[in-house]
Write a protein that binds this DNA or RNA. Structure first.
Lengths: 337, 337
DNA sequence: CTTTATGATGAAAACGTTAACATTTATAAG
DNA sequence: CTTATAAATGTTAACGTTTTCATCATAAAG
């Protein structure tokens, strides 16, 4: 393995000069720099990052931590997030990926190991981890879930606005019996989307009906059974807002199995706009939330915080918007049972 | 930041002793070890990995490289792979994730940066990268794609066996006009699956019909248009084997749009068994290939190679098996146009 | 009691960088 | 030509570990 000292010898200069030349210091004569760069390239020099990091007290790596990497939530989640991050991250940063609940995750959170940390959070269960990171002093941004604590930089989608958009749309198409299949209890996204949904209803003069709130947990299966419960109701809803697309797919299947047609008998609205939403049958009207965009924004923010350690934390909510497809129609009957 | 020297001072021993105590050296008196461990814990000591790595000449990180992280192939891919890897990887290894074609990926491949590398490969385009890694001397395992070069450790699913299973199944259900929507040209998986498909046909006394080979590229859209081409044929196939589930979904949509019923008019078989396969309409009969399992096996293999640098490389093909669901039925008409 | 082996600890060097400070060389001003 | 100043390079000491080799106890053997 060749080191800067080898290069120094070959170039007849001191290793310090080599270090400077290779790191773009301004105190090196252009001629010398080029000569050294050439020699380094010829010798196929690669810096030893351990040594570098030891003395600069940086790690050159930023860590991405996921809630529940095991119980895959939306499956394209991770891929989308990585896309967004990589788009922003300087090319010689390393990016590690770990699960928040992986054994050893807590212990690995060490300022010498990470220059910054991104937490892709799904639930309040992650708070323990988040505050642990915060206590360690590593710059941190929490993604994907709205935080109540304004002292932690945070970027997420505006779930409430999204839920509202869904409800508004259903109302505007003439629905008055609009149900919601809620996401996982305890998740901020669940409650925000529900709040938005209620906002929409109320704004259109509707009173939320307790029968029309059914619990899901963001899984396809839960969507399936939740929809079945809705279909068992004496007075079925004419439209259903599902807390995410996965549950909408489950709901769709439940309808299909019981011969209720979408959107003929029941209209369906999802949330997330995952890849498959446009290929369901019928294509799913849904609220688009861009994980990649959240990740991208979050990375930018993290980078800023790494450079300016005492930047004020901000909460950044990205808009979510309605994607019209074909799972929503006018209700068949105007009113009554 | 507290170091072993601080601990040494607090314990009244030399920092060498602390190092040994904390690393489980056998030359430390049990009493001393416990005392030191306690002090270290009390002081909340965390090792500086840069320093550690510098002297041990290890990096404590293994790198996962993906083909085309940008053009998301199957979306759950990444999540599945990470699951499998994490399951095997010792808890204090770091795992980095990068795209093969990310700028700077090539340059970052440095024995001091990675103790081992896992390549999740999809096509021969990755070979440049793979050989670059090989040349660098870093232990390497290529996952997910069968390699022709036996000198590189490799774990993948047996695509040929899978393709064969699909064709066999169609034949056994009585189909004689069986088409294939092929995967991306140039991908080994495409050609292997096709070979298996042909094996199956031939074993059942059928001659492959050139009209029934249509090109796709593993995307949903390509499945859609490929199926349309098939439906335009004067003599339609009664069963279609799709190179992956994404294309099967596209194909399903094409059928739906043109009013052809699955499996009434046409039977459909996919490949991969991704999460959504069981929620399509009808649920998709497909070939299960477990990315997580491949990743897990591959990680084990990599670890072995890291420990024993001159282990013989092996190619490890994991079985793939037919998952029966409801997209296949007997053909409606026995023969004739 | 010595001597010898063995078990536990310590001192010092090394790992490959960067950075603080010192020194040389070139340039400009007198 | 000096001399002062700036530009370019060199020396040396960190950074926090592990490792080699030396030293000191302690226990076993004579």
């Amino acid at each position: 393995m060749i080191t800067i000292k080898d290069i120094a010898r070959a170039a007849g200069v001191s290793h310090t000069t080599v270090s400077r030349a290779l790191n773009g210091s301004s105190l090196i004569k252009p001629g010398t720099r080029e000569r050294i760069e050439k020699i380094a390239a010829d010798m196929n020099y690669m810096p030893n990052y351990s040594a570098k990091n030891l003395v600069t007290r940086k790690s050159n790596t930023i860590g991405l931590f996921f809630s529940s990497i095991e119980q895959g939530t939306s499956s394209s989640f991770l891929a989308d997030a990585l896309k967004g991050i990589r788009r922003e991250l300087d090319k010689n940063y390393m990016l590690t990926v770990s699960g928040i609940d992986d054994p050893g995750s807590l212990g690995s959170v060490n300022p010498r190991r990470y220059d910054g940390i991104l937490v892709m959070s799904q639930s309040e269960l992650d708070n323990g981890f988040i505050y642990h990171v915060r206590a360690s002093g590593i710059p941190l941004v929490v993604l994907n879930r709205q935080l109540d604590d304004p002292s932690i930089p945070n970027v997420a989608s505006d779930d409430r606005v999204g839920g509202r958009a869904a409800a508004d749309h259903a109302c505007e198409r003439g629905h008055r019996r609009i149900a919601i299949i809620e996401g996982k209890p305890g998740f901020k996204s669940s409650s925000e989307r529900r709040s938005g949904y209620m906002d929409g209803l109320i704004a259109h003069g509707l009173t939320p009906n307790p029968d029309y709130f059914v619990q899901g947990d963001y899984s396809i299966e839960s969507g399936y059974s939740a929809m079945n419960r809705l279909l068992d109701l004496p007075q079925r809803p004419t439209a259903v807002f599902c807390g995410n697309d996965d549950m909408a797919i489950g709901a769709m299947n439940a309808c299909f199995d019981r011969g209720v047609s979408i959107p003929g008998d029941i209209s369906l609205i999802g949330f997330d706009d995952m890849v498959f939403a446009r290929y369901t049958n019928p294509p799913l009207t849904t609220i688009r939330k861009s994980v990649a965009e959240i990740a991208e924004e979050g990375t930018k923010l993290l980078l800023r915080h790494m450079e300016h350690p005492d930047l004020k934390p901000v909460q950044h909510l990205l808009g979510s918007r309605l994607i019209l497809r074909r799972s929503v129609a006018e209700p068949a009957e105007i009113d009554g049972s």
